[in-house]
Design a protein around this nucleic acid. Structure first.
Lengths: 345, 345
DNA sequence: CACATGTTATGCAACGTTGCAATTGTGAAT
DNA sequence: ATTCACAATTGCAACGTTGCATAACATGTG
């Protein structure tokens, strides 16, 4: 039928010889260019031709070669997740990855994950991606108010989305948990339980969320006429130290009767300490934590919590990023996730 | 000086024009081929030439274009992690990824992660990678005795490494936690605490580890002359159900006085149920769990545990895989991780 | 001087893709 | 018949890299 290399023996040791545009061209008797154009929906082609190409492509199971496309167009069809090393939110990484993976299922995109070992090296990671055009877009988490990674990508006009807002003037895509609402909800709930002295336990003051929560906490406690207290400087605290803090707190005369905790890891440690100190949650004091994993509800079935759905966040971040890559403008790509209260009793 | 396109204005909108072999060729006055050859350590080149090229490459910050290399050689410089959706081991995904990331730091490899949503779709994932040569090697976890993914990759002679052994005749690279030792250690420890009726709580009977642990458990209990019992069929059990099981167990007349649990998630739920049922661990009964995350030691500081270092496993898996990709043969790429006991009191 | 022998460097083609300029075919208008 | 407009298709070059076959040069040998 056709001219050369009909089926086997094209050099590569693989079982079935790779299907390329050339294969389809030979099968259909069309030229490479036509096949390529047709597959990308060229409107100048005859309908008959387009059908023929589409059919052949499907039958042969053609999938564009990533290297070819990338070399020619510069498009990598890769999105990169910069994975923060923090383990405050238990199961955060897994859920985020699953969420992203779910959202790119069926698309041409692949996910590459770049674990971050030290926060202050994160600029290097971004620099590398920017310089080597190693992805079409980036997802970052644990965003700070003046996050240098954000700054770099804005400057380079590179598509990205952040989990968390920033304070930059130039708008950029983000998806964020509404921590102000979280704080307000939690305070109101504690107020309704007749708490008078409420403490906020919060770490990682490098994130924007930190500031948002603190501000909202103060506003809400003021409104409710409740004494507010913040346990700060615990971002580096180990679980053991955190537990000790809980133990000390349990012994304090003027201890809080309501606690709001924004980290699961800290919640576990703190509760451990409080219980060891003889305090019974739900009686001596109330605690509300921000829930992201399935573990804490199992562990503390009676504790109130407010949920952030990290799997959904991963999906949303991805959708925003893909639209950004397509060229949508930043202003239209900013969404918030509403906290979901889970009150017990 | 040189002929064409000296510095700027090469079309791409980027700030600094991309450094390619061509750039180095122009700077050094050598040909493309020579530069390429030199950078790959061609021994036929004069030392002077090699130095000149190396110096220029370093000064310009040359990094080979991935698409170019991939197109020409078929090498993707990518390793793929197929991420099982199981959340038995808390923090497993994050540690595994960090471990792999740490091991490829400084190499040309990137990590792509493919989340698995349904186990029975895992063959499709592998098929895709195999057909499209989308990675140079694959890491799989939660390996089964006759794992079809392993079978496929063996058949295709494709580089991979499994976290977990198999029963296949053809050898393949693996790194595995020594669960037989784990079971034996745990039983001995319980025996030394005068336990008489020991129960093994274990889920996911699709993994090889399941069988290894069960066998070793029976052997060890027989040797110690202890009554053995296995709580089976809990692989699909939700934390709530698991907790209920713990509660029921606490009320049982002939309840075990020693429990071995191979999953953190199940440990948490089970302990919750046991405690709710009024049992005090360390007094009424002893429990030893397999520890992978930092959470459980915080939560249960008094419980004995045996640790598997997932971060280290990720690193080892990667090293094995890379050596496999380099062509080392499978037999030499099989290693075991020794369980690390953490006895309290 | 012609020729073989190394040593060192290079030209060319190819991997799979796409964008553009150019070509062919078709029918209608001059 | 020639030209024109339009529709449909195609050839060519290029993206960055590497392997092979060849070239250029110096040196030694008959």
């Amino acid at each position: 039928m056709s001219s050369k290399t009909t089926s086997s023996g094209n050099g590569r040791g693989s079982a079935n010889p790779r299907v390329t545009l050339r294969t389809i061209a030979e099968v259909t008797g069309l030229s490479l260019s036509t096949v390529s154009l047709s597959l990308r929906g060229g409107t100048t082609l005859k309908q008959e031709t387009r059908d023929k190409v589409a059919e052949a492509a499907k039958k042969l199971g053609y999938i564009p070669d990533r290297a070819g496309v990338r070399l020619r167009t510069g498009k990598t069809n890769v999105i990169a997740l910069v994975l923060d090393g923090a383990e405050d939110s238990i199961d955060f990484a897994r859920q985020m990855i699953q969420g992203i993976g779910n959202a790119i299922k069926g698309t041409r995109y692949h996910l590459t994950v770049i674990p971050e070992f030290e926060r202050n090296l994160s600029a290097d990671t971004i620099r590398y991606i920017l310089d080597n055009r190693t992805a079409d877009g980036v997802v970052i988490t644990h965003t700070g108010p003046r996050d240098k990674r954000v700054q770099m990508m804005i400057d380079a006009d590179f598509p990205f989305v952040s989990h968390g807002r920033t304070e930059f003037y130039t708008p950029h895509p983000y998806h964020d948990f509404h921590s102000e609402v979280f704080a307000a909800m939690a305070v109101e709930r504690l107020a309704s339980k007749d708490c008078k002295r409420v403490m906020l336990v919060i770490g990682d003051d490098s994130t924007t969320n930190y500031h948002n929560i603190v501000t909202a906490f103060h506003k809400a406690t003021a409104r409710a006429g409740i004494e507010a207290r913040i346990l700060e400087g615990t971002q580096g605290a180990s679980p053991a130290e955190m537990r000790k803090i809980g133990l000390e707190l349990a012994a304090e005369a003027n201890r809080p009767d309501g606690i709001i905790c924004d980290s699961e890891m800290r919640t576990i440690a703190l509760v451990g300490g409080l219980q060891e100190g003889g305090r019974v949650l739900g009686r001596d004091l109330h605690l509300i934590y921000k829930q992201t994993s399935g573990i804490l509800p199992t562990l503390f079935p009676d504790l109130d919590s407010i949920r952030e759905d990290v799997f959904a966040a991963g999906g949303e971040l991805t959708r925003l990023l893909l639209r950004r890559i397509e060229g949508d403008d930043a202003e239209s790509l900013q969404t918030m996730a509403e906290p979901q209260p889970h009150w017990r009793s």
